[in-house]
Design a protein around this nucleic acid. Structure first.
Lengths: 333, 333
DNA sequence: CTGAAAGCGCTTACAG
DNA sequence: CTGAAAGCGCTTACAG
């Protein structure tokens, strides 16, 4: 079932069918209706691979660093919503294994003639992102680079988010507020969150309590660092964790040590993933509207594919979702 | 940079280059070396879209129902390992949104000339899977259908896994062992796990305590059902949950009700995901070796793509990973 | 507004 | 063992 069959059935040229397919100008309404009827009748589906030989494949590549953080699922919801009424489809490449690097996946996507790429939580630096962007339309989520001119960025205001956390904790009477961060030389996200934490502490007059612990994402190492933090001489009375999954583990370790949450220790996460609502967690967290991020990023990418050349940097305002893990009052109430 | 440029640089025909590319027979070692040198020198990458017009795209499509269950990440690790030394790449389509149905994603993948599909935890019935398999090589993970002849299946022995759970609980002195299952008319996985639970209970002489509660995956509903189960007249002393995420929430609700785990209530999950190791969960679970499942499935799929016609059904033996959530002895010890 | 023809970058018989 | 030519299913100037 090819474009040729449709053309024959509708009694028009192949070029005319192609135009209807692409919603290109220069076809009469009558011809269009005629062709559409034939397409429906024959159950015709254009072959994306063949379209890609000359034009677009109507495929956008999504690069994910990891499948384990549930936050990415929220983003994908938004992406799918944005693509809903378009011909575009999202295909996801996952770089979690050491075998599959982000750049390797992007190469594969370019080989497959994808029309553009959306990179989420990328650890590549600007140089590499620029190289990609020069070849294909590119949008990033979770990569702060307001100076970038070759690709669009979509972010929540991470600095502001971290400040919201500190402010909330300070208002609730916590003083020795520590931050649990991630070891990473490249994440602009973490730089912003750490910056926001520091600024928040300074503004709350808690500068002398600034205390950042960094750890990899390996569970054992997280547990080790959490234990060290909670049994040390300067035990904090609140811990702001860079992402929810870490916060859950910090809660675990704290309870194991006999600490009551939130009376002995407040814990706050980031991303407001589904785990925050689990009854035993009840975790205060920052909502950065993953769905919004995904939706806007997909929208921007399609605009770029269609020809927009000026760069856009989209920033979502984060909001704090307060739960029991940081509100001692809620318990006595 | 096309195959033509490589041919010119190497001083051979385009057909010869194509043969080297495909590792096809009928080229001398000298010519092959010569061509490879040119490919390296020119940094040539074949365009998958063009290859797909006549042959393969070297792309396999992975269909995931949902990005939130961390178990899928384990499977993807195995898939990527299996693809490591091949030309094939995995591209993932996610059907979580109501917009994107599994069949819709498969259609998109066929339009994009993917060479074969791997469907994970599919809710489609045999009829639809057969329709797909007639068009493209197909392998499923998490779909029991030993009679299927058009596609391969890869599973852990879910019935056996469930029996392991019941046996373990019975040995540890639990009697009123309930099962927390999922509302679903189509999941063959759940049918097998429920069957295993029933058989296990009968064999342990606990037939009169058989008690299956089913709920959707919506958090609120899970909480409601767990609470109902734990406050009813027939309160169980152990709950076997069909997947880890549900078990975590059951633990949450139980603790909220003041129950001690594992002394008042044992909880066991399925999938042995990373969350089981979280200190506050310490969840006993069934390991179905997601990585093995992914590895075998990818291997079978490539075999099918290369021409194998006889069907294979691969079954992995599950094993139980015992942690504190089901072993009261471990606590008093 | 409509259509005939060239061409995208590969693979595949087929001939030498 | 090697290569010239046709063709996969589309899109894109171009001519009418």
């Amino acid at each position: 079932m090819t474009i040729r069959d449709v053309a024959k059935d509708a009694g028009v040229s192949v070029a005319a069918v192609s135009k209807v397919l692409r919603d290109a100008y220069g076809v009469s309404d009558a011809l269009r209706a005629n062709v559409r009827a034939s397409m429906d009748k024959l159950d015709y589906r254009p072959l994306a691979a063949a379209r890609g030989m000359r034009g677009q494949t109507y495929t956008i590549g999504i690069v994910l660093p990891d499948l384990r953080n549930p936050f990415f699922a929220d983003i994908m919801d938004g992406v799918n919503t944005a693509l809903e009424r378009t011909q575009y489809r999202a295909m996801v490449g996952i770089s979690q294994s050491s075998v599959e690097t982000e750049m390797g996946i992007v190469e594969s996507m370019i080989d497959r003639q994808m029309d553009g790429m959306l990179m989420i939580g990328s650890t590549e630096d600007r140089k590499n992102l620029d190289i990609i962007a020069r070849r294909k339309p590119l949008v990033t989520i979770g990569h702060h680079d307001p100076e970038a001119t070759t690709f669009d960025t979509v972010n929540n205001h991470d600095q502001q988010g971290a400040m919201l956390v500190v402010k909330h904790l300070a208002v609730n009477g916590y003083r020795k507020i520590a931050m649990f961060s991630l070891v990473s030389g490249t994440s602009t996200i973490l730089i912003q969150r750490e910056l926001g934490y520091r600024r928040g502490m300074m503004e709350a007059g808690l500068g002398k309590h600034i205390n950042i612990t960094s750890s990899s994402q390996i569970l054992r190492e997280v547990q080790l660092n959490a234990r060290r933090l909670l049994t040390g001489p300067q035990r904090p009375d609140a811990i702001f964790c860079w992402t929810d999954l870490i916060a859950l583990e910090v809660i675990s370790v704290a309870r194991e040590l006999g600490l009551d949450i939130p009376n002995d220790l407040a814990v706050v996460g980031y991303d407001n993933t589904m785990f925050c609502d689990f009854a035993q967690n009840n975790l205060t967290s920052i909502d950065q509207s993953g769905e919004q991020l995904g939706l806007q990023a997909a929208r921007l990418l399609i605009e770029r594919i269609k020809g927009r050349a000026v760069t856009e940097h989209f920033v979502v305002t984060p909001r704090i979702v307060v739960r029991q893990s940081s509100t001692p009052a809620a318990i006595s109430a």
